[in-house]
């Protein structure tokens, strides 16, 4: 565990807390893509299939539980909670799951470390996480007024990915034989998807104006 990895996890956790804060206290999920949230829930379910039979540390175990629980509760809120559900921009959140899920599944079946169920599911979760933000980015682009919490949520998610890249660079130089092509390429693709958003987010922050993405 290095400082980049820990900072990355904490940023990831903060992004989820910001989203839960918005949903739980303001009772609003305006500007949040349910499709992205459901894809993240699927990411955690398929990645942590080994949660009960492969123990690495208390820290990992608890974080896995937190990620699973929070992602499922966000989906529950957006689908089942009346007030929250009413604020959901359903008509704008039109990205199709199959365009994301099927290619990731096929890729995981072809490019993996071992052709077993758990291994393919784990690889699938990496590919899926890389592109799961797409419905959210599409929704952001369609939303005229991006509120602060939504902007912060996406910014924190992007920052988490950037910190994980630094973590891998650090591990590459400090742990002999640390090479993980699948994780790295999926992570790099994921981080690049945020580049455009980052650019406009920092611009709006610098000029102290409301965040708005060009159409």
């Amino acid at each position: 565990m290095n400082v980049f990895r820990l900072a990355g996890d904490m940023t990831h956790l903060s992004s989820i807390l910001v989203l839960l804060l918005k949903i739980h206290t303001i009772k609003s999920c305006a500007g949040i893509s349910l499709k992205t949230q459901e894809l993240y829930a699927l990411v955690f379910i398929t990645r942590y299939l080994d949660i009960f039979d492969r123990f690495t540390s208390i820290y990992n175990f608890l974080m896995k539980l937190i990620f699973l629980g929070s992602s499922l509760s966000i989906v529950w809120y957006m689908r089942r909670h009346k007030a929250v559900h009413r604020s959901y921009d359903k008509d704008q959140d039109t990205f199709r799951y199959q365009f994301i899920v099927l290619p990731c599944l096929l890729l995981a079946l072809v490019i993996n470390h071992k052709l077993t169920f758990k291994e393919v599911m784990w690889t699938f979760s990496l590919y899926l996480e890389a592109v799961a933000i797409l419905p959210q980015l599409v929704l952001l682009q369609r939303t005229r007024n991006i509120d602060n919490l939504t902007g912060q949520y996406v910014f924190l998610l992007g920052a988490y990915r950037a910190l994980y890249l630094l973590n891998w660079v650090y591990r590459y130089f400090t742990e002999p034989g640390f090479v993980r092509w699948i994780t790295w390429i999926a992570g790099l693709v994921q981080t690049l998807l945020y580049a455009d958003f980052f650019y406009y987010y920092i611009l709006s922050w610098k000029n102290n104006v409301k965040l708005e993405l060009p159409a």
């Binding site: 990831h12 080994d50 071992k114």
Partner: peptide
Amino acid sequence: KPMESFKDEL
């Protein structure tokens, strides 16, 4: 190195 050790990240 066994592939299992790849999974110490979240």
